[in-house]
Design a protein around this nucleic acid. Structure first.
Lengths: 176, 176
DNA sequence: CGCCACTATGCAACTAGTTGCATAGTGGTC
DNA sequence: GACCACTATGCAACTAGTTGCATAGTGGCG
């Protein structure tokens, strides 16, 4: 149940409407937590009825009205309480790992082609993340507080992409 | 929908009952796909009605009967077809990453303590995986086929644990 | 003999997340 | 003027996975 809390973090930084939150998730926080707009709308409604956020309808010129959500005092407390709870290690899920293990029961060449595509994809993302890091955080050692945290999560994205490239490449080379 | 296929892989290697599959998942294939026994029972029943596996009740001394599942020709074909389909990049989910980003809205010391626990946990797992690798695969370069795949998935586990240790440690050091 | 742990399977209720579609206004373009 | 793309929100139906509990036999311990 972390989507609620991810939304609280994003809304604490700046109030926003559902679709805008979905777009924010495509960047930054979404490296490690993605959600479709439907799921976000659903959860925002629940958070509103639970009193974690309040919504105000905001008219726009050239686009439909939007419901802008703001975190309440209750929401702020919920977030702080959640941070203090212990998170256990999360078991990762990877379909491609299952296929690697399964390769001898099917078409290995097709799998290797799939993996080559994935490597290219991960390389693209890695380049994108490194670009963001270079542009937005030219001197990381001088950061602190929230900015430092945001940078470190981006670092997590970079390290994770590096892990994927290394592993998938090792698989390709072992089956070359 | 990869649990079905993970079960097909495991059952292709050797027929087994539900609980035994759950135990196998705790090791090897479970590095990248975990499931509770309830979920496994549910999926096995569906696979049986779909004709992917057949079940035979097997009496035991000192334990209740068990339903041993064997992959059918249909199941073998389903698995091969699945391997040939393209898997897209999977978006990873990490609650601790959301907390890292959220730390300035709560008790950072509590989060740091949580992360230190996680580092210890990942170190333990890494040591365990490296032990398995050293014991079961003393000369990896001579492997091929299914054994090579199993080894490479274990390598994935090792690389993944290494990623987690590196990232979490970087977070701790930045906030030291 | 009562209690606990273990093996084994399963039901019921729930939560989380996905997929497909609907609605509706604005603005651009061919 | 028809068509398309974009912004914005939402419903309905579905699939996947989790949580808590139930059942039932075996074997060990004190």
């Amino acid at each position: 149940m972390a989507l609620e809390h991810a939304l609280l973090v994003s809304l604490s930084e700046r109030p926003a409407a559902g679709l805008e939150l979905a777009r924010r998730f495509d960047r930054s926080i979404g490296f490690f937590w993605s959600a479709t707009h439907q799921q976000i709308y659903k959860v925002l409604r629940r958070m509103e009825t639970d009193g974690w956020v309040t919504a105000t309808t905001q008219a726009q010129s050239g686009a439909p009205d939007k419901r802008v959500y703001t975190v309440t005092d209750v929401g702020t407390k919920v977030l702080a309480d959640w941070i203090a709870t212990t998170t256990p290690r999360a078991g990762s899920r990877s379909e491609i790992a299952v296929k690697m293990r399964a390769a001898s029961y099917g078409d290995r060449d097709a799998l290797l082609a799939n993996i080559r595509e994935l490597v290219a994809d991960h390389r693209t993302r890695l380049a994108h993340y490194e670009g963001l890091a270079a542009r937005d955080y030219p001197s990381p050692s001088s950061l602190s507080g929230q900015q430092l945290d945001t940078y470190l999560v981006l670092r997590g994205g970079i390290l994770q992409e590096t892990f994927w490239i290394a592993w998938l490449t090792e698989y390709l080379e072992a089956h070359a």
